[in-house]
Design a protein around this nucleic acid. Structure first.
Lengths: 223, 223
DNA sequence: TCCAAACCTGAAGAATAGTTCATATTTAGT
DNA sequence: ACTAAATATGAACTATTCTTCAGGTTTGGA
């Protein structure tokens, strides 16, 4: 999704006083609410302002246009996720492969689940314009973190850590997205929470050679 | 993403002559092209008609509005995928768990990859309006197929086949989507093709008890 | 050959969206 | 209390967008 005119997506100015901070906050939550109830197609600057209880002009004081607003929203969301994952990676350094696997899966689920409403809203616009670009950047950052984390596993050495890290993120990201986008039903979230760690563990298990002598035969060997 | 007015999403009429069939086809591919290059936000009836080399009025002869056009596109896409998966399920009935796993993963990858352009375009609008609803229906249909398929495995009995089928689809669907949405790069597709079958196999392995006596110890047991 | 049905056209109208800016109000510091 | 900077307002302007429809062209079969 490339835009003809890449146009500046940066905010116009940042709120400095208490009042304006609240205003921007209101605009953000209004956007998310509208996104969730009516979808992107119905999201208009007028409606956002109305819902936020401010005037249209106010929005334009902080964002040069609608896209910039959406961009800011997605950026914040992704930065939070990336930060959470990097923290998790730091905490898990040097642990066993199982611990690492469980830790990553849990961290991902927690991060995405912490703000379900926000996450769901974001999915709807993630496919638009330059957002894909930014998503990719953040993604690379997380792949890096997980790749190096994998190499620190205390009890095993992961064969192709970068590919495995990539795949892990694709699987976690994709499956969670699937569930959230369908409506984030409790039963489905339950299944996800139970099964996703399993999927990750098993996948990591085949992708690694045990370091200390261990008798567990790998059920399935790499082709 | 619920719409205030659910409005009729069905096509207005179907082409009966050769000329009109070509026209509708042209409209479809034009839509997909525009979706891919400019994104949903820039997709307008005028542009679609222009790109398709027909008049705007022509489009309105077959679809009551833009949404109906998009809906038709997604429907076709999903039906193709669902059919492919049901075929695969039929072929794999009674095979070993490994064969089933590999077969499903391959079928999914093939189905999504057969028309990469179409798949990618669809992702961009999958989050909109009642499309989520339809996606869910098709999804249930596929879960059913895979669930019953799993119960036919010749060499193992899958513990909670429905949950496993659900998870399998979430993982496959999500990871493929992730890769395609990022631009469907060759290197990333390669990784996906190599790793996804592994992920599925391993996951199925822990989710099942071997039927005939087999000595392979399960590395990781269920909690 | 001829006609009715199918199909196509594109200018035009109504509706809506994005954005600006001159003016009014509030805040923080002196 | 006073003032400059920060913030908010919303009517108004422009640009698009969707959609229709009255009138033309093409098609398939009698």
């Amino acid at each position: 999704m490339t835009r003809p005119t890449p146009l500046a997506l940066k905010p116009r100015k940042s709120p400095s006083q208490a009042r304006s901070t609240a205003t921007v906050e209101a605009i953000h939550t209004a956007t998310i609410q509208l996104l969730l109830t009516d979808g992107v197609a119905r999201l208009t600057t007028t409606r956002v302002a109305e819902r936020a209880g401010v005037s249209v002009g106010t929005m334009y004081q902080y964002y040069p246009h609608k896209e910039a607003l959406l961009f800011a929203l997605v950026t914040a969301q992704l930065e939070a996720i990336a930060a959470a994952m990097e923290n998790a990676a730091a905490d898990l350094t040097g642990r066993s492969l199982c611990a690492i696997s469980d830790g990553i899966a849990a961290a991902w689920l927690d991060a995405k689940t912490a703000d379900i409403v926000g996450s769901r809203a974001i999915y709807g616009i993630a496919a638009e314009f330059d957002i894909v670009e930014m998503t990719r950047e953040r993604s690379v950052q997380m792949i890096d973190a997980i790749e190096t984390l994998l190499t620190t596993a205390s009890d095993a050495v992961v064969a192709r850590p970068r590919e495995v890290a990539f795949m892990l993120l694709a699987v976690m990201g994709g499956s969670v997205r699937t569930v959230l986008e369908r409506g984030a039903r409790d039963e489905e979230l339950e299944v996800l929470r139970a099964e996703l760690p399993l999927v990750c563990r098993q996948y990591l298990a085949v992708s690694a050679h045990p370091l200390a002598a261990r008798s567990d035969a790998e059920e399935l060997t790499r082709v």
